[in-house]
Amino acid sequence: MIQYILFALATGLLFHGIHRKLIARIQGRPGPPVWQEILHTLKFSFKQTWIPDTASEVHFVGVVLISIAIWILALGVVIYEGSVLLLFAIYLLHKIVEHGMGLSSGSPYAKFGAIRSVISAASELPLFVTILLIYYFTGSLMLSDIIQWQASNGPLIIPAFPAAVAMYLIILSKMHFGPFSIIEGKEIVSGNRTEHFGVWRAGLEAGFAIKTYVLLNAFVLIFLGSFSLPVLVLIMAVILMTLSFVCAYCPLLGPYDTVTVQSLVTGVLLAYIIILEVVL
């Protein structure tokens, strides 16, 4: 099973590299090579590393371990076709990791990132409504049942299109350099990652790489169905490229604007559910 984890790690890092490269090309820059993020992670792991004087040590190191662990757990949920609700839970636990990362170091910039992470808690609401909509159509939240439902009824993306849009928005809000990544905005240095450098940063990059892989994989499994591994990775790469286009063209939104956009999407989805219930 370790091979799945290593594969997800390498593919996720490669995806991050493709993401950076595409953004750069769209913005007319040459950009780094696509394997840059893999080299980056290795580079950070070779650097001198310590814990800031003001930090709460156990907590500072603990969030790095937790961030890797929860996304490996999420990978397990996807591999064993477990409950979507569990994926949802892990996504929210990731929010706690982001928050804890910012608070643990004692740096004012990191703390700003952490406070923004609380503000951007609105990104959970679209996910919650997505899950309700999936449950409405398939009558189950187990990934295995959802895949079976799609085998007999066609891809879920057709009846539950608004849910797919909402989940796309959720993945977008977790991409680097995206319109919703307010927690790592450059006006607050590096946001909540400011003080996690060297080995800690490399650990976080590893966790985030698995996160990108798992979220894209879950999107494909939930809305398009089950595919063989090469096709799956190809579809994930295509979805990633569309995300890169959005990230390249959209500026970073203000903290409260992200809340507005995400709440609006939730409102539209709720309206869709009510219409489905009442009219159909």
Binding site: M1, I2, I5, L65, I66, A69, I72, G76, G203, A206
Partner: peptide, 10 residues
């Protein structure tokens, strides 16, 4: 694995 891989990496 979930419990050990993070420790191994770090």
């Amino acid at each position: 694995l979930v419990l050990s891989v993070p420790w191994f990496l770090l």
